[in-house]
Simulated scan of single mutants.
Amino acid sequence: MTGLHLDEIDHRILAELTADARLPLVTLAGRVHLSRNAVKQRMERMERDGVIDGYTLRRGAGSARRMTAVVLVYRADRMRGGGVVTELARIPEVVRCDILSGQFDLLVTVIAESMDRIGEIWEQIAALPGVADTVTSVSLARPVDRA
């Protein structure tokens, strides 16, 4: 991260975006009393500095329930190359990939529209060169969600 100096206006921009990441730039600019271009430049700086790490959409309870699965991946090469991770990043339903210590090398979180799609993705992961074994678990419920 480069120059990580945040002033009061930066903090107000972050608070507004935290409350509503879809806030139109013109509305945000009015709320922090700056021009649209000044707010845009500040947001771009905060993105470059890693203060803003992305914009997300969280589906509400009214949307169709999506399936979540966790795939533990054991790699034959014990993480000596980046090919498996590169291929995982190309699968849109792979929302997270953690490198682990211990028996397994990767923890891959998959969110898909159906169990059939989870199965297709599992087959795709298991077939990747360098993947020696996988263990997959499907989420049945999410009693705590602090994301």
Rank of each mutant, 00 (worst) to 15 (best):
L57M: 08
A38Q: 11
L28R: 07
V32D: 10
L25P: 00
A21T: 01
Q124D: 08
I9M: 06
P92A: 06
R117D: 10
D98N: 11
T86I: 07
D20C: 01
A112D: 10
G82W: 09
E113C: 01
R59K: 11
M79L: 15
L17D: 11
V94G: 09
Y55R: 07
A61H: 11
I121T: 01
E44V: 08
E47K: 15
Q41S: 14
A76V: 05
V131Q: 05
R117M: 03
I9W: 08
I91T: 11
R45S: 08
D53R: 14
F104M: 13
V135L: 15
P92Q: 10
L25C: 02
A127D: 08
V39N: 12
T86Y: 13
T136S: 04
A61D: 11
R22H: 13
A89D: 11
R42G: 06
S63P: 00
I99T: 14
T18K: 14
R22N: 14
A15M: 10
L128A: 01
R80H: 15
I118G: 05
M79C: 05
L14T: 04
H33N: 11
G81V: 01
I9F: 08
I91C: 12
R31A: 03
V131C: 03
T134K: 08
D98R: 09
A38M: 07
M79R: 13
A89F: 10
R59G: 05
A112E: 10
D10Q: 08
L72H: 12
I121Q: 07
K40Q: 15
S137M: 14
I52T: 03
L128S: 07
G130E: 04
H33K: 15
P24N: 02
V39C: 12
L17M: 05
K40C: 06
R117G: 04
V85C: 01
D105A: 03
K40W: 08
W122H: 15
T134E: 06
A38P: 01
